[in-house]
Simulated assay, not measured.
Amino acid sequence: MNIFQYQGQEEDHYTNILMNILALNDCKLVKPFLKSLIPSEAHSFNYEGAYVSIRKKHRPQVEKENEFIIGIAPYKNAIHEKNTLEENLDSIPDAWICGANFNILFEFKIRGSLDEAQISAHKKLLSPHAKVIRLQWSDVTHALQNILANEPIGDVENFLITNFLEVSRNFKQKRRSSGMPSQIISHTKKENEVYFIITGSKSLGTYTVDKVVNNKVERINSSLDGIQSARRWIAKYVNENKDRLPLDYQGEQTIINDYCVVPGRPEKKNQWNQWRLETMLDND
């Protein structure tokens, strides 16, 4: 680990900085950090031989009696537990903190939401009794502020923590560089389930919606003015016709599949999307 080693992805980069700070001076900051971050769990931890690492695919130490996955995202509505879509078995945990009787896997998101497929895959890296804890970045910054206020740390640690706290204020303001709507939770092809085809473009000015059930395509709207308005219309349609649609309806948590098509564009550039009903329902 090296605090100055650049990591290409933002989340990896800031995770590297945070974990290197915690690893300073034989990991002396691990105990106060965890006791503030997860006090009820950390009171039984044995911190002897504390170990910090980043980007390790598998658990770096043997199974321990206390094992946790801690997922951290900016907002409460971004960290609610969701039904798993498809497990991302290639996912690599962002970081690990281990001690004599505990292993903790960390998954960080500096914007957007926790990927529940990642969380589900991460569970397979730990023992069956491992617990998932979902927190906010405010919990992390509060723990770091407690270290500044209550721990006898040196000038270097003080400087690094202060600067990390300053940059972390920007995490919740970050936007997806791709412009992808935050409501999208997956891009998995779902031809074997009920899905909706949204066809149109800004140049055409109109968008249509087709419903596809068992490979049968039915046009259900021909006069929408954008992809997001099409999704809002689909959400309303699903809510009103839930008893007649062969889908797994779970209220506002229902997952909707759509396939966005731009006429004249190569098919490989068309996009499958999954989103939850609650994100597109008009609740006025």
Rank of each mutant, 00 (worst) to 15 (best):
residue 48 E to P: 02
residue 131 K to G: 03
residue 126 L to F: 07
residue 265 R to K: 15
residue 158 N to P: 01
residue 159 F to E: 13
residue 5 Q to H: 14
residue 56 K to E: 11
residue 230 A to K: 04
residue 139 D to T: 03
residue 44 S to F: 11
residue 186 S to K: 12
residue 242 K to M: 08
residue 112 G to W: 03
residue 64 K to I: 07
residue 65 E to T: 10
residue 194 V to Y: 08
residue 123 K to D: 04
residue 187 H to S: 09
residue 177 S to R: 13
residue 98 C to P: 02
residue 114 L to G: 02
residue 148 L to C: 00
residue 56 K to D: 09
residue 241 N to V: 02
residue 149 A to M: 08
residue 115 D to I: 02
residue 28 K to H: 07
residue 170 N to H: 12
residue 224 L to Y: 06
residue 178 S to L: 12
residue 162 T to P: 03
residue 105 L to Y: 04
residue 70 I to T: 00
residue 28 K to D: 02
residue 227 I to P: 05
residue 259 Y to K: 04
residue 194 V to T: 15
residue 42 A to T: 06
residue 266 P to T: 00
residue 101 N to Q: 07
residue 113 S to T: 08
residue 18 L to H: 02
residue 69 I to P: 01
residue 130 A to P: 03
residue 284 D to C: 13
residue 61 Q to K: 13
residue 181 P to I: 08
residue 104 I to E: 00
residue 271 Q to L: 13
residue 84 T to F: 08
residue 128 P to A: 15
residue 270 N to P: 03
residue 229 S to E: 13
residue 71 G to D: 05
residue 218 E to F: 05
residue 32 P to C: 04
residue 266 P to E: 01
residue 113 S to W: 02
residue 8 G to S: 15
residue 34 L to C: 01
residue 14 Y to R: 09
residue 100 A to P: 00
residue 119 I to F: 08
residue 154 G to H: 01
residue 216 K to L: 07
residue 57 K to Y: 12
residue 240 E to H: 09
residue 148 L to Q: 01
residue 193 E to D: 15
residue 217 V to K: 14
residue 214 N to W: 04
residue 36 S to A: 09
residue 279 T to F: 07
residue 232 R to F: 04
residue 155 D to C: 06
residue 13 H to R: 09
residue 207 Y to A: 07
residue 114 L to C: 03
residue 257 N to R: 00
residue 186 S to G: 15
residue 106 F to W: 03
residue 129 H to S: 15
residue 254 T to Y: 12
residue 187 H to Y: 12
residue 166 E to H: 05
residue 273 N to L: 09
residue 144 L to V: 03
residue 193 E to N: 15
residue 72 I to M: 04
residue 162 T to C: 06
residue 235 A to P: 11
residue 210 D to I: 01
residue 40 S to F: 13
